[in-house]
Design a protein around this nucleic acid. Structure first.
Length: 98
DNA sequence: ATCGTGACGCGTA
DNA sequence: TTACGCGCCACGA
């Protein structure tokens, strides 16, 4: 398969960095905006990237953060004013449009 | 060269 | 609404 290029990684990082506090985006949206063939690529990048991106503003399309990060992530979002109802963020309201 | 492994997503039931 | 299956795709063993 086509390896991930540095440029693609840069695009994803730029996109994530562009999400304003108080808003969130999804792996799928970022993949589309960065012109990647699969949201999994974004997930892989997020998982491996060690820079200081606002990773907590990236959630799944269902409005739920990945299970192992849920606690801290929802806490950080709440601190920014993004309220989660029963562990789920209302994407309809806080979804960031690129 | 294969195979297992995910911070994923959508269609179906 | 939740649960599952299946497609997705780069990576490391």
């Amino acid at each position: 398969m086509a390896p991930i290029t540095d440029e693609q990684v840069e695009r994803v990082r730029a996109l994530v960095a562009a999400i304003p506090a108080g808003s969130v985006s999804t792996y799928g949206d970022i993949a589309a905006a960065a012109d990647l063939s699969s949201p999994r690529i974004v997930a892989w990048i997020m998982r491996t990237d060690s820079s200081d991106l606002p990773w907590h503003r990236v959630i799944t399309a269902s409005g739920r953060p990945a299970p192992h990060l849920a606690t801290v992530q929802l806490e950080r979002l709440r601190a920014e004013g993004v309220l989660a109802v029963d562990g789920r963020v209302p994407l309809r309201d806080v979804r960031h449009e690129f």
